[in-house]
Simulated scan of single mutants.
Amino acid sequence: MLFQVNHQPAYCYTGSKPLQPNLPTLVFIHGAQTDHSVWALQSRYFAHHGFNVLALDLPGHGRSLGAALTNVEDMAHWIIALLDAAQIAQASLIGHSMGSLIALEAARIAPTRISKLALLGNAYPMKVADALLTMAHDDEPGAIELVTTWSHLNATQQTAIPGFSLQGSARRLMQRMSAINPAQLFHTDFSACNNYQQGELAAQAITAQQLPVLFVMAKQDRMTPTKASAALRSSIVHAKTVEIDQCGHSLMTEQPDAVLNALKQFLNQSH
C-alpha cells in the first residue's frame, strides 16, 4: 500500500489486508540498509490475526521514494507523518536495530500516538566503530560482507527451507538497497545510529507515559550485544526483556518463531 508522506510515495506492506479502523495497528520499522521484507513472517502473521499492519520502507529504502533521512529524529517525525497519512491515531511500534532507535524517538516526540514499543536488537548509545563507518563510506560492498557475517550466528546455519541461505538472502537485500539508492545509504544509516543522543529523554517520556515496552535481544548478537542496551533497559524500570538463544543480530530471520512468540505474548496483553 502506498501513502503520500511529505509529498513522497511511502510503501507499507499490509499483509494484503485493508486497514480497518476498529483494529489495533502495528508499525514494523526495519534497520540499516534493509526494508520491510525483514519482517516477512511476523508482519504477515499479525495481519491475519486481528491487527492492522504497516511494515514500512523508510525513505530511500525499498519502494519508498525520496532521499534517505540522515538522522533518527527526522525518521521518527516521518513515522508520525505516516500515521497521519494512514489516518491512524495510535499504533504499537516494533523496531529492529536502527528501527528500534526510531521507535524510541517517536515515543519521545509523540508519546500519546504510541500504544506499545517492542525494541529488537537495540543498543543505546548505538555507536558504530570508526573502521566500519569508514568502510561503509569508502567500500560499501565490503561493509555489506562484514555486516552480513557479523549479523548471523554462523555461515552454515540450517533453515526450514532446503538450500536457502540466511546470509545469502541478507547480503542480496543489502546489495539491492545499494542499487536502489547508490548515495552511500549504509553510511547514512550508520551515521544516524551513531549520532543519536536522545535515548535518555525518550526513556523519561516512556516512563512518564507508562508505555508498555519489550526488549527482544539475541544472546549471540555481535552487532548490538545485550550489554549495549543494559543502561537503557534499566532506566525504563517497567520494561520487559526476552533473550533469544542461538541467533545473532538478524534474529527475525534466524529465530523467526521465537521472535513471533515474544511479540504475540507482548502485543496480545491488554496492558
Results as ranks from 00 to 15, higher is better:
147 V>K: 01
189 D>T: 00
6 N>G: 05
194 N>D: 15
86 A>P: 09
65 L>E: 15
36 H>E: 05
244 I>S: 02
232 L>V: 03
249 H>D: 02
88 I>K: 06
145 E>W: 08
209 Q>T: 15
85 A>N: 12
263 L>G: 04
89 A>E: 13
21 P>Y: 02
203 A>I: 00
98 M>L: 15
100 S>G: 06
129 A>W: 05
175 Q>Y: 01
19 L>Q: 03
270 S>F: 08
142 G>T: 05
95 G>P: 14
168 G>A: 01
2 L>A: 12
46 F>P: 04
77 H>C: 00
147 V>H: 02
183 A>V: 05
93 L>A: 13
150 W>A: 00
26 L>V: 15
222 R>W: 10
196 Y>I: 07
211 L>E: 01
2 L>E: 15
130 D>G: 10
231 A>T: 13
141 P>E: 07
187 H>G: 06
104 L>H: 11
192 A>H: 11
203 A>L: 06
95 G>I: 14
95 G>W: 13
101 L>I: 04
74 D>H: 12
103 A>I: 10
87 Q>D: 12
157 Q>K: 13
75 M>R: 03
31 G>A: 01
181 N>I: 09
119 L>I: 08
238 H>N: 11
185 L>M: 04
208 A>Q: 14
118 A>C: 11
190 F>D: 04
84 D>M: 08
183 A>N: 14
63 R>E: 15
